[in-house]
Design a protein around this nucleic acid. Structure first.
Length: 578
RNA sequence: GGGCGUGUAGCAUAGCCUGGAUAAUGCACCGGCCUCCUAAGCCGGGGACCGCGGGUUCGAAUCCUGCCGCGCCCGCCA
């Protein structure tokens, strides 16, 4: 009800002055009513009692009376227990609804024109993607869509772990397997096993370890045969990542990949630039920076290691190179990192260092968007039934398969290809919604039963509301576009409730964008779906009364469009049948 | 030890930044609703000392403070 505050505050302002409360800002004392049965907005008058030496009840009564005559056509004012309550008139709601129908982006203003880099997903080459990557991918993708809708220029960046010391052992493992006659594509068919075996050889075999070390040196120096192997690892891993991304339906493509290897050649210049500014100091052989007041376990200042004693580089250096690349080459204003909460301090230090070094200026913002761990239903780390790590691909396929059974059960007449497509939308939507619906900073319990039960606050519930709307519209014989009726009349409580929830949608998008919190949109879409469910049961649409029929079809179409738009912002499909 | 985060019905969560009325939603539980646009739905009901103690305030789930539980970080790893 953000739009209601402005006209109400214009009426409230002279009333405040008249009552001797000119010091209060009319806009900031108006808040949403905590109990919607009292109204849309509320002004608690208890705060004025001491100044006016009158009871809050008297003050609220007086203010309500003074306001009412000027609020005609907008709202009505009433008072209860010292609260001045404002309730929008149906007429006012109806006019806002008509505006929304005409609005090109469902009332969401494209009023932000920053260039934003969103860093998300970030899997590691030759390593299985785990549920942490799922969270980063799903949350990051939604943020990209939300920020784009607000008008920003958004650049997706997939900061892939494709460089560094692990590649010595990975390449040597690949060599070993090939000498045993195993094709590289087969060797990497299961990345979890491949990585685990490489690791165990590295840990247990001195000879292998030595070969791995030499291989790292060869990789760093650009040795041709080694680079070919490295390329092979990268390409094969990507085909796996792409399969996951395709199934997930995220925006990420190969063009968005900007891996560690890209920044490697830039690292020396990072050190140079820091050195020029005299920011580096030597700490037992390593070049370090002290960007803040962090302490280590012994209570000594915590260094950010820029160059190791052996001349190698650390993640911090790479992250600084990355910041320079994004601000100076890509012209980014805002940097967003969708990375697990455990790296919070690391990012604080890197951001602080980048400010000190002048890589980030006043016009830049940098935000770590943390998310919690993914836990199994036992409260511990998520594992497969056999106790191993869960392959993301298997997980997504299971989601689709579970959805498929439910779709077939309800629609025995559907063609197999229809079922396949709808099951994918539902299964993936269920996984995404359950990941996005809660505040992302909290740990997250992964529970098949809950997310795919198709009941309650789930992706399928929202999709179902949308599908029912499409079904009505198909039966109405009209087109898919929203017709603006001559005037909405909103004759029932169900209709005004639905109108209110629809009108709150742009607000939810704005909040989600400013807080980088997709769950704000989830919650509002759920409220809209609930309001629609109630409307659906109580307000028949395809009826004889022509003007009401037109109005209700329009309301359905508008609701459907908003649900579709909202689901798109979450990266979730909105099928027309289910 | 230091830092950060988190604690809300049996379970899972929203609300906390920006203090307001009877704390919201879902699952589970109890009771209703399919000759009618998809019952993956709708309507109604029971269930909460908002971790505990202090403080600020006319008013605290929300702000401040102390304690307790849980998690994460404090590596020449990423």
């Amino acid at each position: 009800m953000r739009d209601l505050i402005k006209p109400v505050s214009e009426v409230l302002e002279p009333v405040l002055i008249e009552m001797g409360l000119a010091d209060f800002d009319s806009k900031s004392i108006i808040g949403p009513a905590t109990d919607k049965s009292h109204g849309d907005l509320a002004i608690p008058c208890h705060q004025f009692a001491r100044i006016l030496k009158k009871s809050p009840v008297e003050i609220a009564d007086e203010a309500a009376e003074k306001m009412n005559e000027h609020l005609k056509g907008i709202a009505s004012a009433s008072s209860v227990a010292g609260f001045l309550n404002i309730t929008a008139e149906s007429r006012w709601l109806a006019d806002r609804l008509s505006e929304l129908v005409e609005h090109p982006t469902n009332g969401v203003e494209r009023n932000s024109t920053r260039t934003v880099v969103v860093d998300y997903s970030s899997p590691n080459i030759a390593k299985e993607m785990h549920v942490g990557h799922l969270r980063s991918t799903v949350i990051g993708d939604s943020l990209v869509r939300i920020l784009e809708m607000k008008g920003n220029t958004v650049i997706r960046e997939n900061h892939v772990g494709d460089w560094g010391t692990p590649f010595g052992m990975l390449i040597e493992r690949l060599e070993d397997l090939e000498s045993e006659g195993i094709q590289p594509s087969d060797a990497l068919a299961d990345l979890g096993i491949f990585y685990r075996d490489a690791r165990s050889s590295f840990d247990s075999d001195e000879n292998f370890r030595e070969r791995a070390r030499r291989r790292v040196v060869a990789l760093q120096s650009g040795d041709e045969a080694t680079m070919a192997r490295w390329r092979q690892l990268v390409d094969l891993s990507f085909s796996y990542f792409d399969e996951v991304y395709e199934l997930l339906g995220v925006l990420l493509t190969k063009d968005d990949v900007r891996g560690e290897s890209f920044y490697d050649p830039l690292l020396a210049s990072v050190v140079e630039r820091l050195d020029e500014r005299g920011l580096l100091s030597n700490n037992s052989g390593a070049e370090v920076m002290y960007p803040g007041d962090w302490l280590n376990r012994e209570g000594n200042p915590l260094p950010l290691i820029i160059r190791k004693g052996d001349g190698g580089y650390n993640y911090a250096t790479s992250d600084l190179a990355c910041i320079i690349d994004r601000t100076e080459r890509l012209g980014a204003h805002d940097l967003v990192y969708v990375v697990g909460a455990e790296q919070k301090q690391h990012f604080q230090m890197v951001f602080a260092a980048a400010r000190i070094a002048g890589f980030l200026h006043e016009e830049h913002t940098s935000k770590h968007v943390p998310f919690g761990l993914v836990l199994g239903s036992d409260g511990g780390k998520l594992k497969s039934r056999s106790g191993g790590a869960i392959r993301l691909l298997d997980l997504l396929r299971e989601a689709i398969q579970r959805a498929s059974a439910a779709v077939l059960n309800r629609n025995p007449d559907m063609t197999p290809s229809e079922i396949e497509s709808i099951a994918k939308s539902i299964g993936i939507g269920a996984v995404k919604y359950s990941d996005l619906k809660a505040d992302r900073t909290k740990d997250y319990v992964f529970d098949w039963e809950r997310m795919l039960s198709f009941e309650g606050e789930t992706g399928p519930y929202l999709q179902y509301a949308h599908a029912r709307i499409r079904s009505i519209i198909a039966k109405s014989g009209g087109g898919a576009s929203v017709e603006n009726p001559a005037r909405y009349t909103l004759p029932s409580n169900e209709e005004t409730r639905l109108a209110r929830e629809i009108l709150a949608f742009p607000d939810a998008v704005d909040t989600a964008a400013s807080e980088l919190a997709p769950h704000r949109i989830c919650k509002q879409l759920h409220r809209i779906s609930q309001a629609f469910g109630s409307f659906y049961e109580h307000c028949p649409v395809l009826i004889e009364d022509d003007s009401l029929r037109v109005e209700r079809i329009s309301l359905c179409a508008l609701t459907g469009d908003i649900l579709k738009t909202g689901l798109e912002l979450l990266g979730i499909d909105a099928p027309s049948r289910m």
